[in-house]
Design a protein around this nucleic acid. Sequence first.
DNA 1: ACCCGGTGGGGTGAAAGCTCATAAGCTTT
Length: 575
Amino acid sequence: MTATMVSTMENTDYARLLEETADLMEIAGEDGFRIRSYRTAAAAVEGFLERVDDVLKDPTRKVTEIPGVGKGIAFALEEIHRRGSFERRDEMLEKYPPTALELLKIQGLGPKSIRAILEAYRVSTIDGLERLCKEHKLQLLPRMGAKLEEKVLRSIASYRKRAGRFLLDFATRTAEELITYLGAGEAAGSVRRGRETVGDLDLLVSGGDAAAMLDHFVKHPRVSEVLGHGENKASVKIGVEGLQVDLRTLPSESYGAAMQYFTGSKNHNVALRTRAVKMGLTLNEYGLYRVSDEVCVASATEADIYQALGLPWIPPELREGQGEMEAAERGELPRLIEGSDIRGDLHMHTTETDGRASLEEMAEAAHSRGYEYVAITDHSKALAMANGLDEARVVAFARQVRERNQAGLPVRVFSGLECDIRRDGAMDIENDALAELDVVVASVHSYMNMEPAEMTDRLLRALECPHVKILGHPTGRVLLHRDSFPFDFEAVAIAAAKNGVAMEINASPERLDIHATLIRIAKAKGCRFVISTDAHHPKHLGNMRYGVLTARRGWLEASDVINTRGAADLLSTLA
DNA sequence: ACCCGGTGGGGTGAAAGCTCATAAGCTTT
């Protein structure tokens, strides 16, 4: 690795190297506690508020001050800083090629199976694995059979389908990093529209010295490949992840037209151009022109273009060709919710279960975001792996929260619980204990492959529990990883509306659940909503922005979302 | 490998259920 790489290691890069080493050690069948140490350290490094680079460079500091980083991992971090890798990782990569890590992403195969496949067939790629399945060689190995071969083939198909897409937060952070680096620019495309996953990143910049801007762009330290570099545009791949980023430089007089064009969506642009044609105009990425004399009518700003087409400016989140044009025509665009409308966060975890920080730390982080309140909603006992709360701990927790609020906390803290919905739709915690809490989020975490009708009944029963106030991540999807479990969403939305249970818009970038289309369906059925981060670390509270984007994509206004209300109002709403 | 607490060593998140196969691996946050 080059010296330039060393100077640009982010905490996430250190964490990724530790994490992938842990994965390889798992395939190698090494000691579980040692593997966990690597994973703990990776999480600690990722969550560390300062840059590891800065600590390493400072002779008065030691990385061992990061809890979970001891002598061994401190040594590894220094080595990564110096040369981009460390000895243990190199050893592992000699035994198992890096493509083996990709195999871990195939559902149904874990480290043990992968090790068996590697040792029996020396196969370490997805293509090779596919071949083994098709030739029925996987079932020759112990504890593997025909069913597994089919499952693996299905997993490979869905893995390929999502390959090359990236989570919105990764794309957004990359965009912001590049814009800061360039000192100018704006993201267009699906990032600007707030889509939950994106294929590539379009950056636009106007004015200034275009050639110098593009030269500077392709030299960014995280650029791993330059795909093209012309007069007005450069394309690069960023990092090991390989996100493609296009930077276009534009004259300021056509900036609005380009922004409109590159923001899309395709469906929205088709509708907009159709409208232009009907008005004797033609719209392209350079501007809006009269057909008769080719005179440019608008081009400098998006608002100019929409206005010339007789429309108010349409927020990017609505530009999906889903009725926004008609609503704009009628002057009925929603007044979309904004980040500043949010006054609290009603779903988060602490070290009591699988979170990484204390109640006080979460409350402090909420305070510094300007919130009035939070609800601490740790897991219930069905999630044993996360050390979920039983009835006694729930009751004790509720009492403790009342006392701590009295004693003074940075923000008002509501006692809550993310209560598992059991297979039969019953709550995982008895009603008496639930009654002690301010807010109960009910979530499905298990048995996600039930028949749709059975799953619907399960959710409907959960919504009948009088203590349930919020349906958490209602569809269970994990982006680029797992599809929603199937059920009758409309029936559930109707029941939620009837029982006054808010639909959660889970702002975690891995979920963004429920998605925009379902939000609109639920709103039509009379549901109200809550936007929550499901934070497991203080910094996750910052994911609220993605939840707000998703709500905006679902046409929601502040009044649709209960955590835009003040604490007292919210409590009476919940009661 | 880390942490604690004490110079040698022990403990380390915490099940439960499913699938596929017949004891073990994988998934769930």
